[in-house]
Write a protein that binds this DNA or RNA. Sequence first.
DNA 1: CGTGTAAGGAATTCTGACACG
DNA 2: CGTGTAAGGAATTCTGACACG
Lengths: 104, 104
Amino acid sequence: MEDSLRDKKVMTIGIVVEMTGLSERQIRYYEKRKLIFPDRTSTGNRKYSFSDIEKLMEIAEKVEEGVRTDEIRENFKRRIKNENYKKDMIKGQINAHFRQGNIK
Amino acid sequence: MEDSLRDKKVMTIGIVVEMTGLSERQIRYYEKRKLIFPDRTSTGNRKYSFSDIEKLMEIAEKVEEGVRTDEIRENFKRRIKNENYKKDMIKGQINAHFRQGNIK
DNA sequence: CGTGTAAGGAATTCTGACACG
DNA sequence: CGTGTAAGGAATTCTGACACG
């Protein structure tokens, strides 16, 4: 139910460093702080998606502004909640539509 | 003028092996035969795109059918030519449209 | 708190070659 | 022709820790 390409975890950390300009240390630290969730290969190497890259750049901006990683995490949670809320609104409307027999 | 995500060279050969089921040897060989063109990192490691993955799976199919790599390459060339031909057709029609003063 | 760094080891990738055919 | 494999080396990635603060 989402982009697929954008969410596929396929990049090693070296490429992520290249694309974001962040250090390996930073990238791994944001993971420890539960801000990003890379997959792992069978032998333990991290794999990131394009979405992860975008998220990392957003995180880096916030951190530079002085926002603490905990706050950033909470903001992400709120955002997800809000998005789900909106999705439910839409679902509700669709359901209502059909319940009233407004079937095309 | 194309997908961007689909064409970004970001995957190391290990991931490509994982996604295509081909061996490193095969993947490198198809490159030697000019069928795919990965980028390289500054230290020489190959980087592939999602498009490359698709192309590799197409190549693998053909090879299994017994098609020689040279033929596959020529078929790719013809396909590109045909696509460009169609693009030019469309451009021509658009130009004709405006030349006749059919603006808006 | 967020990040740099040296440490040691394990896994990855690279190239050129021998092999079969 | 297309692919497997062992060989040796170079680059990558991983974790846990010391450091500053």
